[in-house]
């Protein structure tokens, strides 16, 4: 036995849904990040980018859009921002930026994916190195010391840590260097 719904139900329903969709569409055009973004942008991009500067319709964030800002000329004009050599090689190999980088994980989150570079961008800034291969053998994990080279960069970093920079404690810099400052905030 079917109970007929009230006669005014469906016209009201249609009108209400239309108002909702139109309202949401208008509001999201004014502030798309609040309506669609899965998380806040990192400090590297927050406040500087519109969604469409990175995202192409139905294609996501594309390498071409990344390179609009992070171009060869940008690398050349900022020699103090590592790691140029690694990225120049990645560009020659046509590696997609999203293979290693991500976004929308919060203001202070790392934008390099964990398995590739557990240190984040911080490590290049404090060591003055240009690429993973400046400290690691082939840039890959090989054994308990993760293929560390015995060179000035590595020895200098171990010495700076005064025992804190040991095997198994090196990976996550922000465990101690919270906020990204060079000096350790823990215990000070």
């Amino acid at each position: 036995m079917a109970l007929p719904p009230p006669s005014s139900l469906y016209p009201t329903l249609f009108a209400a849904t239309l108002v909702l969709v139109v309202g949401l569409g208008w509001a999201s055009a004014r502030d798309p990040e609040s309506f669609w973004a899965p998380g806040d942008l990192s400090i590297h991009h927050a406040g500087r980018m519109a969604c469409t500067q990175c995202h192409e319709p139905f294609r996501g964030a594309t390498t071409a859009n990344c390179l609009a800002c992070h171009a060869e000329t940008t690398f050349a004009s900022q020699p103090d921002k590592p790691p140029q050599a690694f990225h120049r090689q990645a560009a020659r190999d046509r590696t997609r930026c999203l293979t290693c980088h991500t976004e929308h994980r919060g203001a202070t989150a790392k934008i390099t994916t964990e398995p590739l570079n557990p240190h984040g961008e911080f490590i290049f800034r404090v060591t003055g190195t240009q690429s993973c291969q400046d400290c690691h053998v082939g840039g890959k994990r090989q054994g308990p010391k993760y293929g560390l080279l015995d060179n000035d960069a590595v020895r200098g970093l171990v010495a700076k840590g005064k025992g804190a920079h040991g095997p198994g404690r090196f990976a996550d810099c922000f465990r101690c260097h919270a906020g990204g400052r060079v000096g350790s905030e823990r215990g000070s």
Binding site: L3, P5, P6, L9, T12, L13, A16, T17, L20
Partner: peptide
């Protein structure tokens, strides 16, 4: 039950 239909149906559409 009719009152419930007025709530459940439109919520589903939304």
């Amino acid at each position: 039950f009719r009152l419930w239909q007025v709530i459940h149906g439109p919520l589903t559409v939304t």
